[in-house]
Nucleic acid binder design. Sequence first.
RNA 1: GCGCCUCUAGCUCAACGGCAGAGCAACGGACUCUUAAUCCGCAGGUUCUGGGUUCGAAUCCCAGGGGGCGCACCA
Length: 505
Amino acid sequence: MAHPLRTADHLRPQRALKGTMTDVPYRFDRNATAAGLAADYADLGIGEETGVTVRVAGRLMLRRDQGRLTFGTLRDSSGAIQLFAGVKWTADYDSFSHLNLGDWIGAEGEVVRTRTGELSVKVTSWVRLAEARRSFGDKFRGITDVDLRYRQRYADLWANEGSRDTLLARSRIISATRRWLEDRDFVEVETPIFHPIPGGAAARPFTTHHNALDVDLYLRIAPELYLKRLVVGGFERVFEIGRVFRNEGLSPRHNPEFTMLELYQAYADYGDMMELIESLVAHLATVMLGTTSLVYAGRELDLSTPWRRASLSDLVEEQTGRRYTIETPIDELRAAAGGYGIPVSGAWGPGKLLLEIYEKTTEAALWGPVFVTDYPKEVSPLARDHRDQPGMVERFEGIVAGRELCNAFSELIDPDEQKARFEDQARARAAGDDEAMAVDADYLRALEYGLPPTGGLGLGIDRLVMLLTGAEAIRDVIAFPTLRPEAPEAPDGPAGGPDEADRAG
RNA sequence: GCGCCUCUAGCUCAACGGCAGAGCAACGGACUCUUAAUCCGCAGGUUCUGGGUUCGAAUCCCAGGGGGCGCACCA
């Protein structure tokens, strides 16, 4: 954005229309949409008229003035339809032929197909529903300035059709996810966004304050601990699709607020979670793309089930040719991590070292889909001990297109063990790890009432949408991504006009 | 936080040390079947900001600001 200061002097002058169609109505009775007309009259022959009068509404995106004829392209949320106006049959023709691109209009007329074959509404009467006092950028090339696209999404959505398609796809993906889970007896719930104790993930939280209670609260970094409380309360299958907040950096793959699906299933373990999530993702790909084979970032990706399962240590060995486990002598792990350029902390145990080595050498090289299984207990304070491997837990991450798509485990249900894990985290926190978890005494109390064996899973909805829409930036799948606020001395809105007196108050 | 790149008219872009331009939009006009209509005309600028070098800076240098990408952090 070249000019943070955008004055109003480039606004179009308000244009008073001549004739009788000048009052802006409070409502408009539309009875047809662009897509509906295209479907209903697909067989209408060239030059034919239907005798059917319809009322359409939308934004005028293109205008082709021929003198005594004017063609307009009207876009509504379903698609585009041509408006066909003529001096002989259109009321206030002169004003119609001078409408600005971007104006919202409602029009009434007969459905016809022009002599050149374009399905059209032959406008007899029309009304301007709103004036566009700003233009929508280059009508052919749209808006390409990424900052402008994200800041003024309302303009981007008209200037770049792909933006709208992506957000529509997001809606369909979330809707299909809900339906799929509900069909399997999952119950959707809502849990608090204000948390007195941030928990459920390793991340720095945002802090806020409640005045009446005079307490600091945290915006949730994950809904996990509340959802498991609901399982304790008898909800055997629950899920939540909601916003979580992490006070971390921004990147093409990170937004400080993002949408997470978390679900918990009683009587299930992490193996069940693998089957569930690979089925769900394959289903969504089929719904959205008609296939489980897709191309992302120029590379083929096959989401058909079953996905590969491989242990973290095995994958590191595949990638590096060296085998590391939590049994590897710690000096050897430290040396190896240092050799990969990892700034090793003396406080790290073998589990943390192993995880760091995996993330540095292997994770980004995995294209997937693959379930990376069996993580060190040291780095997984909420996952249950592995039934066969001491020091490990039953946890997996689903890696797709080189990124973590989901994280799941057989949930830790033993309150004593959970208490010990929390205390380990608290020690790490005291030692300076500001992403370590805090002790949540109420959560321990809930576990003391009894959490049944439970499988749990968290999945990043934004990344899933990226995958299924081909978006390579998380900002493309979020309508209003987090941006640095515009300079406060640069009002650029309805109140930002040159007439300062209007703002006195 | 660090590194690299970038910022010119409302939008999309030229000019790259020598008169700041084009297309679209807007504004005025011509045109009875257009499809990014076409054509004629008019208007539009603190070249992100502030310094510096130079006879001369949009262009080169320094500092600051916005944005992008990478690293780090993370999902």
